[in-house]
Computed example of a mutant assay.
Amino acid sequence: MVAGTAPGFPPFEIKEGGELTGFDVELFEAIVAETEYQFGGWQEFEFDALIPSLRDEKIDAIAAAMTITEDRDETIDFSDPYYSADQSIIVREN
């Protein structure tokens, strides 16, 4: 099983000292270790290339800080969500 990710989204995916790490990376590796699948390593992509790479069978799974949207959910299958981020914009009063 080969996983794809897009480093540059700490704390989820980041390269530290040339090594890929972060919450999604470590979680994915731990999950695969509990299965009968063989982990074939990581492929790094620009974020927008992750879904096309999965559809084109360049990778077997995506491990990335990817928000589940209606359009994405129609294209690929997601696991159950494991992180919820509320986003807002803060502006001055006047």
Rank of each mutant, 00 (worst) to 15 (best):
L27I: 05
I31M: 01
D71F: 07
Y82C: 07
M66K: 04
T5A: 06
A3N: 01
G22K: 03
D77E: 14
L27Y: 02
I62W: 08
F39D: 07
A3F: 08
D48G: 00
S84A: 07
S88Y: 11
F39E: 10
E57F: 13
S79V: 00
M1Q: 01
F28D: 01
E57S: 12
F23P: 01
D86R: 08
F23V: 13
I31V: 12
P81A: 05
Y83N: 11
D48C: 00
Y82P: 01
T69D: 03
L27W: 02
N94K: 13
F28V: 00
R92L: 10
Q87W: 07
T75L: 15
E34H: 03
P10T: 04
K58E: 15
A49C: 01
D48Y: 01
A61T: 07
T67F: 07
S53Q: 10
D60Q: 13
S88Q: 02
L54H: 04
T5S: 14
I31D: 01
F47S: 09
A85V: 15
I90Y: 06
E70W: 10
S84N: 03
E70N: 13
E13K: 03
E16N: 10
D80H: 11
R92P: 02
A65D: 14
D48K: 04
K58W: 08
P11W: 09
R92G: 03
E16L: 11
T21Y: 03
